[in-house]
Structure formats: structure tokens, C-alpha cells
Write a protein that binds this DNA or RNA. Structure first.
Lengths: 159, 159
DNA sequence: CATTGATTTCAGAAATTTCTGAAGATTCCA
DNA sequence: TGGAATCTTCAGAAATTTCTGAAATCAATG
């Protein structure tokens, strides 16, 4: 078996990539998309092509295309300049994980708004109103603080 | 149509509940579970029974049972004392939404660990290693700061 | 302790999601 | 502009998830 200078093997990185894909799947990504994203993380080169991903992962070109589209849309990957290559190259974006976390904020906002609408619909001084007020307070707090937390990370890293 | 003092209707609250259920579904809950949780939020009484939920939502008793089990496991609802009743009563727990957010932390930890394992598997000074280090740094930061953020909310509310 | 009514379990049905593969579109180069 | 290789789209297949409904279990009461 081929070993590089660090004593790691291709199988080691493949296993680690699949482990990451599993976590991403549990986080809501579909399986192919998760595997593609993990492959981006573990790629030897700075950028990869759709064809390379399809071959390495053993999935159809259609699945890879869909995954790349999705990952581009949410801002996790981007086209990479690839002079003199016929194929399109892609790579992970700077700060991709912070972007992913930020996208959770849309969820937080949706929860806040759902609570707010609920309060309008429920009568005052009802058990439902009390629950909805606590919910709105909590998500309002998170909606204010979560972006600030992520910004602090960016500042810490860059500064 | 019946209107209460606030001028709201049953249809209003039902619609608001379904809207909340939709958001919860997008957040990863299965449909029945999301509708049951929303029904808990909008319930008129302090606690409800499985039978009431099944009837109100028009779903099978089996689905309700599964939803209650799941929601109990993650700590969003709890058994409520119901003296003199043959049926089991349930209600939302205090701070349920903070609990839900905290459970996201398990995800953060899993991402951190996946990055860590990846670093072991990847060679040093490779593109993959650089990406994995950034990933580990980010999730390490989140793993430290997110629980603190939630604790601050609890302190603010209680204090 | 038997009866009655409610709840849980679980195998199979139904619904939904995801993937594939082939056809069509696109891009690059000669 | 033609040709070759890659990429995207999308209808249908496959896989997975979710729900139901009936049987089994459980708990309270007479």
C-alpha cells in the first residue's frame, strides 16, 4: 500500500472524507451533495472538476452537476479560474463554514416571524400567547446575537 | 364565524400553527412531529393528550405517539401531572427553544471532530490540510461560544 | 382482578426524496 | 463553422422516509 511521508494513506483520507459526508448528511444535505462537499475539502489540488468528482465518488455526472449547483448557490464553493483548461474548475470559498453557519440565521428569522404571527392570531392572556412570547423573545435574541458572533470570528481570524 | 374578544378566529390560530409547522419541517422535523409541536404551542390548555392531538390534527394515533416520543427525547415536551385523569397529559417544557438551539451544538461538535480526524488523515502542508485547519478553527470557536450565548439568554431571562 | 379505554408498537402501504442516464446544450479550439 | 469533449437538464427508476391501522400492551377504576 502506498504511504506518503506522513504515513497516511489514500484510504485514510477517503474514510475521513466519508465521515465528514455523514455528518453533513445528518445536518440536512443530501447524500451526493455531502460527498461532493467532503471531496472538495479533501482534494489534493486547489480546485477540481465535475468529471473528477464523478469518477472519484462513483456517482453520475447529473448528481455532481446538481450538487455543484446547490453548493454554489449557498456560497460554499465557487468557480476557479483555470486558464487553458476546457473544463470548469471549482473550489471551496474562503470562510465557507462561516457562510454555512450564517445561513442558519434564516431559520432563526423564520422562527421569530412564525412566533410573531402566532401572537397576532392568539388571544392575549392565553397559555398559547405566553408560550409564543417566550419563543419570540428567544429567537429575537438569537437573531441579534448570532450574526455578531460570526462576525467576531471573522474579525479574529483576519485581524 | 366565532370570534373571541381579540377578534381572532380558530382559523387564524390554525393557520399560524401550520405556518410554524412548515418552518419546523424545513428545519428537519418530520411533518407529523412538526405539526404536533406546533399544536403544543397553540394549545388553549396548559397540557394536552395524545388523543386530542390525533383528533385535532387528523393524523393516526401511531404518528402522534411517535412524535411525542421524539419530542420528549430531545427535551421539548414533558409529561404533565394530571390528577384524576386516565389519559397521559403532555406540555411544552420551560426553555424548550433554548434546548432546541443547544442541540444544534452536537452538530457543531461533530463538525469539529470530523475536521480533526481529517487533519490526522491528511498530510501536512497540503491544500486539504489548510482547509481542514480553517474548518476546525471555526467549529472550535463555535463550540466554545454558542453554549455561552445561550446561557447568556437564560441568565437575562431569569435575572 | 376483570373491564374499559387509552397508548404504544410495528409491519406494510404510501408518499416523498434522491439518483441515474440519456438527450440536448454549451464551450472551446482548429 | 464543425467537431469533440464537457456540462446541464429532466423524466423515470430506485431508495428512503414517513404514515397508517390493527394488534398488543398498559393503566385506572369499579
Amino acid at each position: 500500500m502506498h504511504r506518503n511521508e506522513e504515513g497516511t494513506t489514500l484510504a485514510d483520507t477517503t474514510e475521513a472524507a466519508e465521515r465528514l459526508a455523514l455528518v453533513l448528511t445528518q445536518g440536512g444535505l443530501q447524500k451526493s451533495t455531502a460527498r461532493v462537499l467532503a471531496a472538495f475539502m479533501f482534494a489534493d489540488a486547489d480546485s477540481v472538476t465535475a468529471g473528477e468528482l464523478a469518477e472519484r465518488l462513483g456517482i453520475s455526472s447529473g448528481s455532481v452537476s446538481g450538487a455543484i449547483k446547490m453548493l454554489s448557490t449557498v456560497g460554499l464553493i465557487e468557480r476557479a479560474p483555470a486558464p487553458g483548461s476546457r473544463r470548469e474548475h471549482y473550489r471551496m470559498r474562503e470562510g465557507a463554514w462561516a457562510t454555512l453557519m450564517s445561513s442558519q440565521n434564516g431559520m432563526v428569522q423564520a422562527m421569530f416571524e412564525a412566533a410573531d404571527r402566532g401572537i397576532e392570531a392568539a388571544g392575549e392572556d392565553t397559555p398559547a400567547a405566553r408560550r409564543l412570547h417566550e419563543m419570540r423573545d428567544f429567537y429575537g435574541y438569537m437573531f441579534r446575537e448570532l450574526p455578531a458572533l460570526i462576525d467576531r470570528w471573522r474579525a479574529e481570524r483576519d485581524g
